[in-house]
Design a protein around this nucleic acid. Sequence first.
DNA 1: GGGCAAATACTG
DNA 2: CAGTAT
DNA 3: GCCC
Length: 580
Amino acid sequence: MVPSRPSSKLYQIKSKKYDEYGARVTSSFDKSVSHVLIDPEWDGSRTLKYLHISAGDIRPEIDKGTIHFVRDSWPSACIENKQLIPESPDYTVQLYSPAPSPETTPEPEVSQKLVQTVISPEKPPKLKKRDISTSSNTSLSPEPDTPKQTAIDDLNPVEASGANTSIENKAEKKAQDGSGNDELDSVIQEAELQEHAARFLSDDEIEHALQTQRKKYSAPYSRPKRTSDGRVLKGNWDTFLCMKAGEDNIAKPDGPNALVINILSLMLHHYEAEGDQWRTLAYRKAIATLKKQTVPVRTAAQAVKLPGIGSRLADKIEEINKTGDLKRLKYTQGEGKFEVLELLKRIYGVGNKTANKWYSEGIRTLDDVRERKDLTANQQTSLDHYEDFAERIPRDNVTKHFERVRDAVHEIDPEIEATAMGSYRRLQPDCGDIDIILTKRNASRHDLTVTLAKLLDVLFEQGFAKYTFGGIEANSMRWLGASAHPDDGNKWRRMDILLVPWEERGAAFIYYTGNDIFNRSMRLLAQKKGYRLNEKGLFLAPHDRKSAGAVGPLVCGEDEEKIFETLGVPNRPPHKRIIG
DNA sequence: GGGCAAATACTG
DNA sequence: CAGTAT
DNA sequence: GCCC
């Protein structure tokens, strides 16, 4: 790829995509190269300069058909059209054009537009996009569809280009790892898309989805074994340099559908702010699909074929493409409203309803909120320490808080087992809050609550515990509060202390270790296998679906590892449970 | 039309 | 009960 | 919102 920026997100995504179809992306310009994929901004002469070659040197190879200089939109177009697209002005980059007109290069968008007409569109075998993109329910089907692979076989650039070494057919199919990971991965995809917390899918999420998808469905070819480092070059290409530039780079964010994605994202924000959970989910899925497209999705007819895009969204997509805007958005979206709502919702006790209510009453800033007389105690306290609570907590400081709690509780009862959960257990470098589980063998719930009450007396006495948002009163099984530690600058931190019966310890550990998306995928997997997983344990699913709260007999709850085992999932250490 | 995970606890 | 939080 |  020219320019070669292996560190860039775009580069990595593309590489993987090409790899999926049996091509290999290399960073060295050597004999094995069959295609040079050139950035739309670059022209032939700049490319040659970049490669340290002159047109004359390369021309014989081009004429022989052993090397092709094409736009980097070409592979995408081939994939999209499910066939090799022949050389055409739309994709072939002229290296030795008679009149070296340096700067002007064809618009990639335009060329992509032409693809479908350029190519003899013999209706490709009925392939559903769904099969190759992350999708919801279909990804759960035990038997991955295979037609896509056969069709793609025809695409293998090897045959077409006559290039020899760059792409090697590999007969051996990637062996199923049989570990059960596949299954989890596939439900992870589903779970990812349902994550509320993220506003919209990050590149990483997309990438992860692509990866897992590949693991599941692809692999007719394997990457040719290559010594990624110093492979000996021979022949006349020897003298050419390695292309290992790769500094900063500004990848275009969302590919050819950026406009649509941006506008739909606004809709997503809108519905999210309204608390419309399911519409939010639908928009998120649709946007994820669009982000993966390598060519513009222009009409409703095209769009509706894509997974997660139904007739309503398809119409919106077409409207956006035609008008550059979406009417619906006009009167749903107040300018900057989203940001204000986000600001307000970071106050403990303020959710969608309250934030929207306040907004409608003219609240725009924290100072506006501070003037209100109707704040609840929790809201007031949260507001008073807004800055502290908004800050991430460095891992080492979490340790300080945790040790203070652990030591105090051991003064009360040395047999209590204390564990810091959440992102801390996932070994993250910083955490949003501090989650601690207290448990003890053979202790009753009551025993635990008594201990917690004593513990909090001590911690408040120490001045370490600062405030109680909830819990504690009576005999709650948890405390939601705030703590401050001198070694942490006495900043107020959100802390949750959870009491867990020993028998539920394993399930609770999974639940409170997270992350959210991992948990969802686990629950989804459990359901798929006829179980129900919650923070109390792994249960057999009730026979009569429906009837809320009904679960079958407990399978296991005490042993985290056994739960994984029962579900056929290799026990991932906590830090491997970070998804999305 | 129901499911999209699901349960529980606290505040006001 | 509605809303919020975990 | 989409999917079944």
